[in-house]
Design a protein around this nucleic acid. Structure first.
Length: 506
RNA sequence: GUCCCCAUCGUCCAGAGGCCCAGGACGUGGCCCUUUCAAGGCCAAAACACGGGUUCGAAUCCCGUUGGGGACGCCA
């Protein structure tokens, strides 16, 4: 099986396209000997950029979708950029021409547009009127030598219909008379999309063309082209599109739409992949796994590759649901290696204004601290706020808060803060056990318990009314307080210093 | 306008004629756990678009309507 992902490098990798890429990749990796090809469709020189191509490649790699043949690594059927294959398209266009399956078209863009509008307003099917179809060889030669620019159009053959079997939709039929003669080569010698795909898919020996549903109505045109060129068409599979919450195509006004944006929002690639697979496909109900009773929707990529199949892909458009993505992300955040999460969260700290350039010692500290946040956070971008209490502590500032000041104004709360400071004065750094011991000392001395005990302690030591469990937060503070400066982490005040400062500020 | 595709809870899916007065997941609501916010556990509400057929029997098959999406480019 040879499949391909063929983006046009005109911007960011859209999540809808990422899903198409994923489905192709899963199929290639699921069986044995599958080949996944990356082809760049850059025939639109105006809009295509190398920057975009590089960005898309990076996004694919980030997702974990590697390719076996592509512009950067080559392969037996290269080149893999359409802009570098122009000679191929030209020679196949000549072949069509000499076989009488194509003809020169001198119609001006203005003329074509006028025809279109006329057809539209008269309620006729919109397709090429066939103006240049019957031009004689002499006429053509004359106009060509006169220097007129001409495109080359494919001559759609006389037939009833084009019928093909779509792997996800079943039999699809198009009457021939709705298909106008498509341009094969533009006047500037570059190929039109429908022609380039056919030549490329044939030459690259693509066996399955798996793409978005927006290409469904292009398919009959392409099949006709395969026939005229003497190629065997691949199998086709058209995937329903990904929509926004209002069922219109997912676009910027719905929020993030590109893989890169989701990455900068702090989603993990494995979450993105798992979630994308869940739009239009489900791990439930396939025979292999219903027996094992495993119907969890949390399926890592290698399992996806094993279980994915086209015949279980849905037919209707799916709404992209960021809430569910977040849920999937939470799962992977919790199960991922904390060291990796620590590593990945560094740029998010910087982004949040907490300078962070950790060395090995710093990373070890962050890694230890990760344990108390990954279970309560949706995305990496929320990690800094959750850990800000470590690096950003100011007793005075905390007590400026109206609400918190009031909470600390009670007899009991003050007593707790004072007792805490006294217990901690001169005390060694706290680990979990020592913190518990201190807490019960304070409890014994003040008679406060539960919330009345721990809330003032939290305020005093973290400066915030909420946050991770104190059992974890306090030892982290004191671990951080002794960090060497080379660790690359902002200075952290220890519990002893905080308790003293807080009591003083009361 | 013409052609093509699609149609189960708010959302993503399961359901391939009786197992379905429809099942799971996300989200939502409630309860529990709890030193806070989360997380976690449990429970609940929530759908077969509509109308005709076919059949002993339809969410499942057929037709139509409606609704949504796509295409109709010398964009891809």
């Amino acid at each position: 099986m040879r499949v391909r992902f063929a983006p046009s490098p005109t911007g960011q990798l859209h999540v809808g396209n990422a899903r198409t890429a994923l489905f192709n990749w899963l199929l290639a990796r699921g069986g044995s000997g599958g080949v996944f090809i990356l082809r760049i469709e850059d025939t639109d020189a105006e809009r295509s950029t190398r920057e975009s191509e590089a960005a898309m490649a990076e996004d694919l790699r980030w997702l974990g979708l590697d390719w076996d043949e592509g512009p950067d690594i080559g392969g037996p059927h290269g080149p893999y950029r359409q802009s570098e294959r122009l000679h191929l398209y030209q020679s196949y266009a000549q072949e069509l021409l000499s076989a009488g399956n194509a003809y020169y078209c001198f119609c001006s863009p203005g003329q074509l547009e006028a025809d279109r509008q006329a057809a539209l307003s008269e309620g006729r099917p919109v397709k090429y009127a066939g103006t240049c179809r019957q031009l004689s060889a002499v006429q053509v030669a004359g106009r060509l030598t006169a220097g007129e620019h001409a495109a080359i159009r494919f001559r759609v053959p006389e037939r009833d219909a084009v019928v093909f079997t779509d792997l996800v939709r079943g039999e699809v039929r198009f009457a021939i008379d709705v298909i106008g003669d498509p341009v094969v080569l533009r006047a500037d010698g570059t190929p039109a999309y429908n022609f380039a795909v056919v030549v490329d898919d044939a030459l690259m020996e693509v066996t399955h063309a798996i793409r978005g549903e927006d290409h469904l109505s292009n398919t009959p045109r392409q099949i006709l082209l395969y026939d005229a060129l003497g190629f065997t068409p691949p199998q086709f599979a058209h995937l329903a599109l990904v929509m926004g919450p209002d069922h219109s195509p997912l676009s910027k006004r719905h929020g993030a739409t590109s893989v890169a944006e989701f990455r900068t929002r702090g989603y993990l690639p494995e979450a993105m992949v798992n979630y994308l697979a869940l739009i239009g496909w489900s791990p439930r109900g396939d025979a292999a796994d219903s027996s094992s009773g495993d119907d969890s929707e949390l399926v890592p990529i290698d399992q996806l590759a094993r279980r994915f199949s086209l015949d279980r892909v849905g037919h209707s458009p799916g709404v992209f649901d960021e809430e569910k993505l977040a849920w999937v992300n939470r799962h992977y955040l919790k199960t991922a290696d904390p060291a990796r999460i620590a590593e990945l969260s560094v740029p998010f700290f910087v982004e949040a204004g907490i300078p962070m350039a950790p060395d090995d010692v710093g990373i070890r500290f962050l890694t230890a601290a990760m344990a108390m946040v990954t279970s309560s956070v949706d995305r990496l971008s929320q990690v800094p706020a959750r850990l800000a209490f470590l690096f950003d502590y100011d007793a005075e500032r905390t007590l400026t808060d109206e609400q918190l000041r009031r909470e600390m104004s009670s007899e009991g709360a003050r007593a707790v803060a004072v007792a805490l400071a006294e217990e901690l004065a001169g005390a060694p750094r706290l680990d979990r056990e020592r913190f518990r011991a201190v807490a019960s000392q304070v409890k014994a001395r003040t008679g406060q318990k539960a919330r009345a005990l721990f809330h003032p302690i939290r305020l005093a030591l973290t400066g915030r009314p909420e946050g991770p469990e104190l059992d974890l937060a306090v030892p982290a503070l004191d671990l951080g307080a002794d960090l060497p400066t080379h660790a690359g982490i902002p200075p952290i005040a220890g519990s002893r210093e905080r308790a003293a400062a807080f009591a003083a500020a009361l």
